[in-house]
Amino acid sequence: NEQSSGNNHSEKGGERKIKIGHLAPENNVWHQSLLKFDEELKSRSNGRLSLDIYPNATLGNEADMFQQVQAGSLDMMIVTAAEMANYSDSFSAWFMPFILKDHEDSYKMAATDEALGLFDNINGVEGLGYYFAGMRHVLTKGNPITDIDDFKGASIRVTPSPAIVDFWEKVGAGPTPVPLPELYSAFQTNVVNVIDIDLDATIGNAYYEVGDQLTTMNHMVWASGVVINEALWADFSEEEQKIIKEALQVSIGFNKENNIEREESNLKAFKEQGGKVTELSNIKPFMKVAEEIHKKYGGQDDSIQTFIEKAKEIAE
């Protein structure tokens, strides 16, 4: 919308620092990817374009920053699909279980029109691409989860999005949303006894201290959009837009390498901390539940339907 003319926009041709915010700490894969983005941006534009990075939610939580980007008081951000699903149901496409099996698939999917088209449903922002965090697994304590029956009666911490809640309910668990800051103690005191999480958070937030049993489910990927204020984007020259897109592509490549490496090193770290890693003994009953979810949400929303079809094509 109209609110994009900030204090340092006007000087076209002069130096332009793009303010970009995100939630993660500086040692996180997002931040590292942004540093790469910044580096590429500077070298490709001869220093005219660069990033001004605000990590650690210094400008507010996701909802905050997202609305700031929409309003133009912040230029860019990394925003999870979960947050964007509050603005457009179509983003639930990323929560469809068992459609993308690993990082290779996810990055391929992210580059498709079906994935990038999801951004069209949101006002005020332009989506330039996706970053990912690790694959989703489940962490528990005591006895390992190997079978769908192990979920019966478990209370599992989830991100409270209908598609995710639906999936876990159909699996037989009790999905319980717990805000992240309370998760460690909630897990420790058994408010929840299973958590749906990626390895980066398991190591970074020390959830391994509580849960020593990891089941590598790979049931979902955790996608986040790199978005920019729409009016600001239109304000850039074609050449500048091209530079930004190319620089982002390089950083997405970096993000991918980094994620694949971290998935391995995190798994190793988890084992070194005394954690046990298990695989599902029988994936079929999960796939059956997943099919039901695909049908339900694909049936509600065409964008989700085409997304699922494309993902399945990639996963072949």
Binding site: S4, N7, Q67, A71, G72, S73
Partner: peptide
Amino acid sequence: NMLVSIPQK
């Protein structure tokens, strides 16, 4: 341009 984000903040 920050004024518009005050209510949300």
